[in-house]
């Protein structure tokens, strides 16, 4: 049954409470195109009320947000006939920011991608840097304007491990969720 205006008002109120309690201060649900990526990044750039941990922390989180959104923009499945929106949200608590993205991927892309994520998640900071430098010196740029540096950059800024999940939706599609914690 469709929501009535009154239902929607209550829902907005609930959503407001959920977002406030969890300090989720930015969300987007939809197709993350290059223009939308630019708009979201601009919103982050000019937002001084929610980034309250000083310019160095802001810059670190900004980098993670840019790389996360660019990854979704480049790799998310876009179906012409059926909308397959991606989700992006930023939240924070006292000592860390959380950047979460979720987008559809074709099932066939998942085994190699899952392998890569598992591999880089076991590396030490020095090993990540060595891998990053090796791509800088010897890596090739793909036709999607990628070199494989984005995820390594995210790992270096997050000072930890990537928290990710693939949720199988239907035969050829899975929903990929990436949660990145950045210490403030």
């Amino acid at each position: 049954m469709p929501m009535t205006t009154s239902d929607k008002t209550i829902f907005v109120n609930e959503l407001y409470n959920i977002m406030s309690e969890n300090q989720i201060f930015m969300t987007y649900l939809g197709d993350i195109t290059p223009d939308i990526t630019n708009s979201l990044i601009k919103a982050v750039k000019y937002d001084n009320s929610n980034f309250t941990h000083g310019p160095a922390a802001k810059k670190k989180i900004y980098k993670v947000i840019v790389e996360s959104l660019e990854n979704v923009c480049k790799h998310a499945v876009r179906l012409e006939k059926e909308l397959r929106p991606a989700i992006f949200l930023i939240g924070k608590n006292e000592d860390a920011y959380h950047v979460i993205t979720g987008n559809y991927l074709y099932q066939e892309e998942i085994p190699p991608f899952n392998k890569l994520l598992g591999e880089i998640n076991t590396l030490s900071r020095e090993e990540i840097k060595a891998r990053y430098n090796n791509i800088l010196l010897n890596g090739e740029i793909s036709d999607k304007d990628g070199a494989g540096l984005g995820l390594l950059d995210i790992l270096l800024k997050s000072n930890g491990k990537l928290d990710y999940e693939f949720i199988h939706i239907q035969d050829n599609l899975s929903f990929y969720v990436l949660k990145v914690k950045v210490d403030a």
Partner: peptide
């Protein structure tokens, strides 16, 4: 002031 990861690759090409 800021460069993304793909720009880093091109900056490296310039430096090389």
């Amino acid at each position: 002031e800021y460069f993304n990861s793909i720009s880093a690759k091109y900056i490296m090409e310039i430096l090389s």
